[in-house]
Design a protein around this nucleic acid. Sequence first.
DNA 1: TCGTACTAGAGAGTAAAGAG
DNA 2: CTCTTTACTCTCTAGTACGA
Length: 301
Amino acid sequence: MQVGRLFDIVYQLLLHGSVTAADLAERFEVSTRTVYRDIEALSEAGIPVYASRGRNGGISLIDRFVLDRSLLSEQEQDEILFALQSVRAARTGRDGELLSRLSSVFKRESPDWIEADFTDWGSGKEEKDRFALLKSAVLQRRVIGFTYYNAKGESRERLAEPVKLIFKNSWYLQAFCLSRQDYRTFKISRMEQVRLTEQSFEKREAPLPDLDEKGIAMGELSLLFSPRLAYRVRDEFHPSCISARPDGSFAVTTSYPAGDWIIGYLLSFGSGVTVLAPDAIREQVQKEAEGIQRNYFKEKT
DNA sequence: TCGTACTAGAGAGTAAAGAG
DNA sequence: CTCTTTACTCTCTAGTACGA
């Protein structure tokens, strides 16, 4: 007797409510007699299964028996389904099938009120493969090797013990860097030639630093946007940071994590933004703009 | 452990009888 | 003539006996 088939029979009964022995026999490619033996086994195991004869008859479970026996409250069941729904958004495995099965077990509709896609626009198979590889490295506790490009574009070969994948507007990997002998946070899009090594590792005693408490310096940024960038301003800043001016322009005051990235980000607005404060950022953007001007106008001057 | 052949129960369908 | 009731048949399905 196959235990797997017993589970699948219960799953089918939960999914469809009532199923005839002939249907189950056809599905599992066994005779109806075998199905009845399985039903008998389920009954002996305490599963409240019953059968009704005649037209529209069939084998069923006592309504809501799983829910009644479950130790989980309805809210907990919803939270589990919601968590699975979120994980499924990463599109990394058989989470969809699992979600469907658990929805049947809990006799609840899948919480299909959220759709998230953590991948970048245009990201393809390569990124998904890299993501899957990192996931298995974390779960199997295997050291990975990769080439990492820092913010300045310099590449360096690394060996690291991957600990956790984090999504904070982009995907990051928290790992113990073997060359630095410390925890580092790597942006996954900057990792190249990621590979699993044969080397496995044990969980380290040192606690994993919390990203929010890592001491990332925050600064106050005061910006002035031209009216033509209204759509980006509305998309990228919280409404409480934005104040519209009579001339149609927008003043934005926001806090930002320090780093060179902010210059590139501000330049992405082109001439549509003016940095009002702080002076240091204003000067850096100005310097970059002068560099751009030199690059494009040196032949004419 | 499984399949074939069979039995029995239950409901749907149908035709006939009866009442208004 | 129409509607309702009743009895019978058919079909579907659960369940059993027996053997490989």
